[in-house]
Design a binder for these strands. Structure first.
Ligand SMILES: [Zn+2]
Ligand SMILES: [Zn+2]
Ligand SMILES: [Zn+2]
Ligand SMILES: [Zn+2]
Lengths: 154, 154
DNA sequence: TCTATAATGTTATATTATTACATAACCGCA
DNA sequence: TGCGGTTATGTAATAATATAACATTATAGA
């Protein structure tokens, strides 16, 4: 992300995928929803609801419920995740193969990386089963420094 | 917790430990701080800041900064944790041996159990090192049903 | 076209948290 | 004991985040 990547691709792919998902599920990927998703994807950081609100200029004289409803829709359909420790929202990096995700949040560059599955999920599963706890939803957000920022600070 | 436990013990122990910790560290465990910690420990659920505020009746004509400052102090000293997914606060169940904790939150009875260490922490550590990410702080909050509520619903 | 439903607009308000500055309590020391 | 710096608390205002309730508009089918 830090590096030289063509971020327009990321946005475009996110929008295309969202469009396809909505089509498949008989949902409407409206202008507003597309626009909000684009704004969230403007970079690989997280977006705050009221910043989205501000940036929905032009045709959209948006007010809070507009944005929060749109965020709800996007979250319900796995296109966006809320980062509770930041009160902010990120685009889902792989809305199709979705399972046991967690987030690495760099406090230096503010990028958020969504990670999946693997041994962490397994450890969580077995911990829960030992405790006889039935998990419905897991919030796992790890704040620290990403590899690029660590390198840069050396 | 659900069961027949003498909850007064929990409160008392939490206060005693907090007192000791503050003593050892040259910190002042004031009336206000003690009172807020007691309120947080009134049960094994989580407490909202504005509920604490309301319940600080009597001598305390508390206003938001009073409570938030007190919560900050308690958090900084490991006596209380914030549950980000609930915007609420829980008493730390083991402020002395603190390391890699996470929370099991029952959506039926609202109790929050603080768990520690073990294989989950190990999995997180090795994941982070694979990703070359240096974690500073981890938010791990698992919402679901506790064993007692599962039994009760059968 | 008509109608039911889904989406968005609008106003108001609830909830959560912080800033900035004033006052009071406490502690070490003359 | 009284002084002076530091820490803690009080107070007023406001910022930041989120929802409730109801009105209007757009859409998809019959
Ligand atoms: Zn995702
Ligand atoms: Zn970074
Ligand atoms: Zn703890
Ligand atoms: Zn329970």
């Amino acid at each position: 992300m830090h590096g030289n990547h063509q971020h327009a691709h990321c946005i475009e792919e996110a929008i295309t995928t969202a469009n396809r998902i909505c089509d498949e599920r008989g949902l409407r990927f409206t202008d507003l929803r597309r626009r909000v998703l684009e704004l969230i994807w403007e970079n690989h950081g997280s977006a705050k609801a009221y910043d989205l609100l501000e940036n929905l200029g032009g045709d959209y004289s948006a007010k809070p419920p507009t944005v929060y409803r749109t965020l709800d829709f996007l979250q319900e359909n796995g296109l966006v995740h809320k980062i509770n420790s930041l009160n902010a929202y990120v685009g889902c990096s792989h809305p199709l193969k979705h399972k046991d995700c967690f987030f690495l949040i760099c406090s230096a560059c503010n990028e958020v990386e969504e990670c999946c599955g693997s041994s962490v999920a397994e450890a969580l599963r077995s911990m829960a089963s030992e405790q006889n706890f039935r998990p419905d939803h897991t919030t796992l957000e790890i704040e620290g420094r990403c590899v690029d920022c660590l390198k840069a600070s050396q």
